[in-house]
């Protein structure tokens, strides 16, 4: 029963997420670009998406201390890092540039691809390719770091 629920809950969450994106207007990429481009026909709507989402989700975080484990068991696995590293900034710079260019961040890209349209499918494929490229880059960086620590200086 718990096994079934542990699959159903993320399916349901994914479905609600997708519907939320569409209701919010984030699957219309021209609306997203009109939000990011304050110098144009500015559409501040998507700021209200963040207000609604963060409003609900902060409440969930307030319930967290009362739980010893997630409802479905297992353990909490949440980010704890506090430091600023170049990767965080460079990654955010790159993501923003791409977001403003095509009006898709990862969630809307996945949901929009279900329309079967040529453009969203090209975007999704390129985005996944970018993620694979990152993995290759990351693996090479880890190997370089390991080699540096082994070589006598």
């Amino acid at each position: 029963m718990k096994n079934l629920l542990s699959l159903l809950l993320p399916v349901l969450a994914g479905l609600i997420f997708a519907v939320g994106l569409a209701v919010a207007g984030m699957t219309q990429n021209s609306k997203v670009v009109n939000f990011l481009d304050v110098s144009g026909d500015w559409d501040p709507s998507l700021g209200f998406v963040m207000v609604g989402a963060i409003g609900v989700h902060t409440l969930a975080y307030r319930l967290l201390p009362g739980l010893t484990e997630p409802w479905l068991g297992g353990r909490f696995l949440l980010p704890t890092r506090q430091d600023f590293d170049p990767r965080l900034i460079v990654g955010a710079v790159m993501f923003g540039l791409g977001w403003g260019l095509a009006g898709y961040c990862p969630g809307p890209a996945v949901v929009s691809a279900t329309s079967g349209g040529r453009e969203p499918l090209i975007f999704l494929a390129s985005m996944l390719a970018g993620m694979v490229l990152f993995q290759l880059f990351d693996r090479a960086a880890v190997a370089r770091e390991a080699a540096k620590q082994q070589s006598p200086t």
């Binding site: 609604g52 989402a53 609900v56």
Partner: peptide, 19 residues
Amino acid sequence: ATVGGLLIGLSASLMLLGQ
């Protein structure tokens, strides 16, 4: 936009508290 945001927040909360 706000209603859509509430749904996104609900989804994220289900993942946080449930999973």
